[in-house]
């Protein structure tokens, strides 16, 4: 990986971090980590439109910049907000577990 992103001189870093010793020859000096986030969901695909919850729902992909977010129900199942609002017009239950649909939280 990169050799250039940190230009701390050896003297500086040795003062700050514990020096390696005979018993412990390797010491971690600096650490660059990479993490990836996703919605905290049971299933990463919306059961209604079958598009990843990380992406806009199918209908919203047709209309760029549409306001599309994720909703979690009390049952902890999650869907696109747009898909769910279409769904509850016919049936006010979670499509996955048939519990009554109550919005628990939303994510944007």
């Amino acid at each position: 990986m990169s050799t250039t992103d940190v230009t701390v001189t050896s003297e500086d870093s040795q003062k700050k971090t514990a020096n390696p010793t005979e018993n412990r020859p390797f010491v971690l000096k600096k650490w660059n980590a990479l993490a990836i986030w996703a919605w905290d969901v049971e299933c990463d695909t919306c059961a209604i439109c079958r598009v990843h919850l990380m992406e806009e729902c199918l209908r919203c992909q047709s209309e760029p910049n549409a306001d599309c977010f994720v909703v979690w129900g009390d049952c902890n199942h999650s869907f696109h907000h747009c898909c769910m609002s279409q769904w509850i017009r016919q049936n006010n239950r979670c499509p996955l577990c048939q519990q009554d649909w109550v919005v628990q939280r939303t994510g944007k």
Partner: peptide
């Protein structure tokens, strides 16, 4: 900060500087 999110660590793209007493 982000209650609705989970994070996973991508170890293959993490890197470190290690002191070594050769």
């Amino acid at each position: 900060k982000h209650g609705n999110r989970t994070i996973n660590w991508i170890y293959s793209l993490s890197h470190a500087y290690v002191f070594a007493r050769v």
